[in-house]
Computed example of a mutant assay.
Amino acid sequence: MKQHIFALIAALGLSACTTAPGKPTNGAAEQQVQTGHAAVSSLDRPMYLRGDFTLWDADEVYRLKQTQTGLYSVRVRFMSPGKVYEFKIADAKWTPGYNCGFRYDGKVSLGKPLAADCDTVYNYFGFMPDRKGWYRIALDLRGEVPQLIVQRD
């Protein structure tokens, strides 16, 4: 269990040795203790949905916005049903700890949370919409492991 906690903290680029639980880390991500593990509840930098449909750029149109403490999302329009859209959530510089792809499996299912790894280089999420329209892609940092969720909007 401790190895998973330290791996999560390291993957998100945080230092647990200089911060008291619940206190900001000099403008960095805030930590809190939940049932014995540290969890990231907010980010210290802009994060973007970056994918084949954005030419992998950090475009302001695809910047995630905080909707609740620890929950960030962006609205996107997918116009090609049956096409697999590949994407990640990352900061503008692809910084280690802020480069989120899949942890175990990249196939995204509508409405089902999928574990994310925010210290990955190649693990792109893949989502194939069954119809064109607006979708909401969210990064949930409230639990022990970051999760990605895609829903119709």
Rank of each mutant, 00 (worst) to 15 (best):
Y62R: 04
G111K: 12
Y48R: 08
K107W: 05
P24T: 10
V61C: 05
D130I: 05
A11C: 04
W94Y: 14
F87W: 07
S15C: 11
P24R: 12
G111E: 11
T120G: 06
D52R: 13
L8S: 14
T120R: 02
K65E: 13
A115I: 00
T67M: 08
T54D: 09
N123A: 09
F102T: 02
H37D: 06
G70F: 00
A92F: 00
D57L: 10
R103S: 15
F125D: 00
S73K: 01
G36D: 13
Y62A: 08
Y85N: 07
L55S: 12
C100R: 01
G106C: 05
A20H: 10
S15F: 06
A116R: 03
D130Y: 03
V84T: 15
E60T: 08
A115M: 04
G97Q: 01
T69V: 10
A90S: 13
S41T: 13
T95V: 01
Y62P: 01
R45D: 11
R103F: 06
K112V: 15
P24Q: 11
V76T: 10
C118K: 03
M128W: 04
L71F: 12
K23Y: 04
V33T: 14
L43H: 00
C17R: 14
D52V: 04
Y48K: 07
A20P: 02
K83H: 11
K107Y: 06
P81S: 06
S80Y: 13
M79K: 10
V108W: 05
F78C: 08
P129C: 06
Y122M: 13
L110E: 15
I89Q: 02
W94C: 14
A7L: 11
G126F: 00
L12C: 06
N26H: 15
D52Q: 07
F6C: 04
A90I: 00
R131Q: 15
Y124V: 11
P113L: 08
R45F: 02
E30V: 08
M47P: 07
K83F: 09
Q68C: 02
S80L: 13
L71K: 07
T69Q: 15
K93P: 01
C17P: 04
T19S: 12
A10Y: 12
D52I: 01
Y122T: 12
Q34S: 10
G36C: 07
A58K: 05
Y85M: 14
C100Q: 08
